[in-house]
Simulated scan of single mutants.
Amino acid sequence: MRERQASRNARRAREFEAFVAGAAGRLMHAATLLTAELPDDNPRARRLLTAALAHTYAVWDGLRGEDPYDRTRQYLAVAFARGAWHQYGGLGLAHPWSRPKPGGTLSCLSPHERLILVLRMYEGVAEEQAAAMLALPAERVRAVCARAMATLLHPPREAPAVIAEVAPS
């Protein structure tokens, strides 16, 4: 009995390691795009990916033919959305202080726009599937994706820095 359990655990570990070897790079890039961090400085993305992979490993035996990549991507997206909701008070909050530090590829987008754009354009998730994953109407996903693409193609101009000169007294 113990030998069979040990054999099952070893097989599970090998299967999961093979999955991670093939999928971790793409998932890490998706997480980095979601958090709008720089590729070389992405602690939030690493935490997101670690949690998503841990969850996938925990349910590995229960996947039963389900694609582990889809399951991990879904967990990653939902965890990002939940984190953005708690951190910024919602996914659509567009206050300047809610945006990450400049530098990330998608830093000019809100968390909501980044999430939908990454799912649709980078991951190739169908509009209806993304809508179901995020519990949004498909029309809303389409509109947010279009707005995000327009913002990326025509980024907002930075306001000119105001230099205040103080006259000597």
Rank of each mutant, 00 (worst) to 15 (best):
P39W: 02
E37H: 11
K101W: 01
A58G: 11
P156I: 15
G104P: 05
Y57C: 08
L153N: 10
G92P: 02
R64Q: 15
D41G: 04
H154I: 11
E158W: 04
L91I: 13
A161N: 01
D70I: 09
A126M: 00
P111R: 00
A31M: 08
A36R: 03
R26C: 00
E139G: 05
A36T: 05
R82I: 05
L93E: 03
L48E: 06
A79L: 12
G89V: 15
G65I: 14
W85Q: 12
L115W: 01
L48A: 03
A126T: 02
P156C: 12
R114S: 01
R46C: 13
T50R: 09
R73Y: 12
T72P: 06
N42L: 10
Y88I: 08
P39C: 04
R46H: 08
A36N: 04
R114I: 07
P160A: 10
R99V: 04
R71I: 06
R99H: 12
G104H: 06
R157W: 09
A58M: 07
A150L: 12
Q129E: 14
D61H: 04
A143K: 10
L34M: 04
P102E: 09
D70Q: 08
L33I: 09
C108I: 14
G65Q: 14
W97P: 00
D40G: 13
A52L: 02
P39E: 02
H154M: 11
G89C: 11
A21P: 00
P155M: 07
G124I: 00
T32S: 07
W85E: 14
T32A: 10
Y57P: 00
A132S: 10
F19I: 14
R44E: 14
K101C: 01
L76Y: 13
M133P: 01
E127G: 06
A159C: 02
A36F: 09
L76Q: 01
T35I: 13
P68K: 14
R99Q: 13
A79F: 06
A84C: 12
A138H: 06
L93V: 05
A58E: 14
L27R: 11
D70C: 08
L34W: 01
A54G: 13
Q74T: 07
A130H: 14
P68Q: 14
L76E: 07
A126H: 05
V125I: 15
F19C: 14
A84V: 11
L34S: 02
A143M: 05
P100H: 05
A81W: 00
M149E: 12
E128W: 03
G22V: 02
A94K: 04
V59N: 05
A81F: 02
Y88P: 03
L117W: 15
L109K: 02
G92V: 08
L106F: 02
P68D: 10
A24T: 09
L136M: 13
A79S: 13
A84S: 15
R114L: 04
E139H: 11
P160E: 15
A30F: 00
G89F: 08
V141P: 13
A23K: 10
E158P: 01
L27Q: 10
L49W: 08
S98V: 03
R140K: 04
R44C: 07
G124S: 10
E123A: 07
T151K: 11
R140P: 00
A150R: 04
P96Y: 02
L106K: 04
R44Y: 13
A31D: 09
A126V: 00
C145R: 12
A150T: 00
A146H: 06
L53D: 06
V78M: 06
V144H: 03
D70E: 15
V162K: 13
